[in-house]
Design a protein around this nucleic acid. Structure first.
Lengths: 211, 211
DNA sequence: CATGTGAGTTACCGGTCAGTAACGTGGTCG
DNA sequence: CGACCACGTTACTGACCGGTAACTCACATG
């Protein structure tokens, strides 16, 4: 993805394992700060300081703050799909179980104390919405999620797979969004799984209570 | 650019009631800019300029930017409930129609070209989440929405009214959130009404398809 | 005419932010 | 040894931002 700057430096250090390069420390720190406090709220100075280095080392590793932000969003995206694939891999050929386990895993994620909603979606809220590469990145991501959910609804044999996929997406993004306000698992996400199951049931030929 | 959002603030013709005061122009302008571009992205200079005045007049009308932001959020909240009450007033004693018309009205709102999701919720995403008055304001608002939805689900006679209310809230906030990314009515909000009806149906004694 | 008030203008303060320049240092390797 | 490399340090620029001071003007009322 991001071409040359990944393993130009550091495969030797990776083998040794003991010493994480400055770049990685900065990146990990930035990801956490961006997610926890929002992108605009976190300055490069704060990132560098928190990573135990300084601004110059930051700019030796990243072309600009925007470049770092883009990489942050791409990383979150990658992790999302990695998690997704790993989750549905447990039930190949069983779309119903796949969807349910997907939402169960999502619920675990979203219940976490450190969860602050969807990194990509939150970023979209911070942006001017029109021009830049970042908005396009988020839009592309959300489109992919929608496509996948619709496809799974199709594989499930739903009467209206597009509607079911979209409804599931509303639930997913709704649980992200409410999580910004309601701490822990005290919010409306308590009703996520029943809602998912009810929507699925409403789209199937009135049988099959479980696999 | 700013085209026409008012009628050039009529001269001293009106002695009766309406005030073409600077304060109101500033406030209206700020509400629009805050909603469209996010709170942190909009400086007081930009607000004043867009309102056809300057920073000093701004600070004669508002104690600080934070004070203006608080007033902005309170205003949006007020409008939300006003719209809510007006909508359900059409079907007194009919919680089912009330909920449905509530979501139909919500869908109209969210389909609008200028819609950028939930002003209150977006603000929550921009904030540090812990400390301030603003966070508390948003939290209180969302708690109220949840309470109202749960109550309506109770009046509806749902088997699990809390779960239904929460699920409806997930759909509502989900449609706000996805709207940040999908333009117009092209997104998953297309599936909002069917999902609402399916969830309601799943919580009722298996009859009553409509009024 | 005097006076008070709402409003526009210019200039400024202190702070923060992204980004750069120049230099220093300790290690690694040919 | 000496070149190189990754990293640290200090200091800086230019822009912007929230907020303030001091002055001016228009005007309405008495």
């Amino acid at each position: 993805m991001n071409a040359a700057n990944d393993d130009v430096a550091g495969h030797e250090a990776e083998i040794a394992g003991a010493k994480p390069r400055v770049r990685d420390r900065i990146f990990d720190t930035a990801c956490e700060l961006f997610y926890q406090h929002g992108i605009r709220s976190v300055g490069v100075d704060a990132i560098a300081a928190e990573a135990g280095t300084n601004k110059m080392s930051f700019y030796r590793s990243f072309a600009s703050k925007d470049a770092l932000v883009a990489e942050y969003l791409r990383e979150r995206q990658r992790e999302f799909w990695e998690h997704w694939e790993a989750t549905i891999a447990a039930y190949p050929g069983d779309p119903r179980r796949q969807i349910e386990s997907l939402f169960e895993a999502h619920l675990v994620t979203v219940k976490d104390k450190a969860c602050r909603g969807c990194a990509l979606g939150n970023a979209a809220g911070e942006m001017a919405d029109d021009d830049d590469v970042l908005s396009e990145l988020v839009r592309h991501f959300k489109k992919d999620v929608r496509k996948r959910l619709r496809r799974m609804a199709h594989e499930l044999g739903a009467r209206d797979p597009d509607a079911l996929g979209d409804a599931l997406m509303l639930l997913m993004d709704g649980s992200y969004f409410t999580r910004l306000v309601f701490p822990g698992n005290s919010g409306p996400i308590a009703a996520l799984m029943p809602a998912v199951r009810a929507l699925i049931a409403s789209q199937l030929p009135a049988s099959s209570t479980s696999g």
